[in-house]
Design a protein around this nucleic acid. Sequence first.
DNA 1: ATTTGCAGCTATGCAAGTGTAT
DNA 2: AATACACTTGCATAGCTGCAA
Lengths: 118, 118
Amino acid sequence: MQGYGWPGNVRQVHNVIETMLILAPADRNKPIDLDLLPAEIHNVSRSGDESELDVLMGLPLRGAREEFERAYLVTQLRKFNGNVSRVATFIGMERSALHRKLKALNIASDYQEGERMI
Amino acid sequence: MQGYGWPGNVRQVHNVIETMLILAPADRNKPIDLDLLPAEIHNVSRSGDESELDVLMGLPLRGAREEFERAYLVTQLRKFNGNVSRVATFIGMERSALHRKLKALNIASDYQEGERMI
DNA sequence: ATTTGCAGCTATGCAAGTGTAT
DNA sequence: AATACACTTGCATAGCTGCAA
């Protein structure tokens, strides 16, 4: 379990452990079967180069969604040289709503060409 | 403009055209400057192999989000051999809510190993 | 596994601002 | 002055999700 990243979601840890406690043998001296762990957490053998999408697949839904939106919006901002209005038009969203979202995701609105992504 | 996919979002088309109409020269005989088009739509030169993420970047927010979630959930279902409960646990979501979501996204819950994604 | 009703939270559109720069 | 854009905020409503059954 230490090999897994547990990407910032307490609830996930809680759920997994709870499940294991329920499925674990009553005898507290017996070891807990590794198969009780979800496959993803179990198989953390390949620690090499994952594609960006693959990384997101390892996150809980909320986090994955958020990271995707962040990447998406940063990309759009770059594409339109930081012009929020044009981004809003292109992605089909209200300008004000977009501002709110950028703030919530902590994305600097003046994302220009040279910036790094994620 | 015909070179662009206009991925299923009427609002986007509407907004872009509206913007062009506003920015276009008053003289209806003059051609409309291509630069009035958002960069993404303008530059559809590279019609080669885009990564999956890149494709999503060309969609309006709603569609991109939806496609991402679809890919995400299908991946999770494959990982857990179609076991909805385990997926729910891993992604930190209520089982019932996940069922609703799968239905809404039209994802068969019995996604197994061999299935194709997107 | 799968649905459904319901209550609460979140996201978003719309409207109406303020501020800055050209 | 006028325009364009950035940014904010209040409000109503639509959508999502947890919980219970």
